[in-house]
């Protein structure tokens, strides 16, 4: 049999839209997002769960897309960094990362944005220690983290002022 014979057709909900793909069962969600759906905002670093660059939301909770198979995702809602800015306007977290210089090359940024979009909903008043604990799951080779922590504190304050949706 040819490889294509093993392919399965999936109907995925990505950023609120239904997207159909035909993929092998072992295809990683990260590869489907980037290569089949062209959503290259989700980055891939290590493919074993350590670097955090590939983090997306599954039903609102952060998950490594490199440790998730696309075939598992039917019936779940996937959210990627592409959906975070609304109508060209950055989210408070993205805006704070920009203002605080929380990124240099930006490779780690999508994973950090997705992790903290979820975390700040769970904990709107995080301490620096709590932020650093959560941030331990995202490797950044450029910034030294200081400005990322500052940005997250700022975003949390902005979100509190605005009232979280």
């Amino acid at each position: 049999m040819k490889e294509t014979d093993y392919k399965v057709t999936l109907s995925l909900i990505v950023n609120g839209e239904t997207r159909n793909v035909r993929v092998l069962p072992q295809r990683l969600l990260s590869d489907v997002l980037r290569e089949d759906l062209g959503l290259t905002g989700t980055h891939v670093g290590c493919e074993h769960g350590v670097c955090g660059a590939c983090t997306v939301l599954v039903d609102g909770a952060p998950a490594r897309s490199c440790l998730t198979f696309a075939v598992q995702m039917e019936g779940h809602e996937i959210t990627t960094v592409e959906s975070v800015a609304r109508d060209g306007e950055l989210s408070p977290l993205q805006q704070a990362l920009h203002e605080e210089h929380g990124l240099q090359c930006g490779f780690c940024t999508p994973g950090i944005v997705m992790t903290f979009e979820a975390y700040l909903k769970e904990n709107p008043t995080p301490s620096t220690t709590e932020i650093r604990d959560v941030l331990s799951g995202n490797l950044c080779r450029c910034t030294g983290y200081q400005n990322i922590v500052a940005a997250i504190l700022k975003a949390a304050a902005t979100l509190r002022e605005k009232g979280v949706e």
Binding site: G49, G52, T55, A61, P62, A63, R64, L67, T68, T115, Y119, D133, V134, S136, G137, N138
Partner: peptide, 9 residues
């Protein structure tokens, strides 16, 4: 255990 995202799964 691990990190926030790891603990969700």
């Amino acid at each position: 255990i691990g990190h926030y995202a790891i603990r969700q799964r």
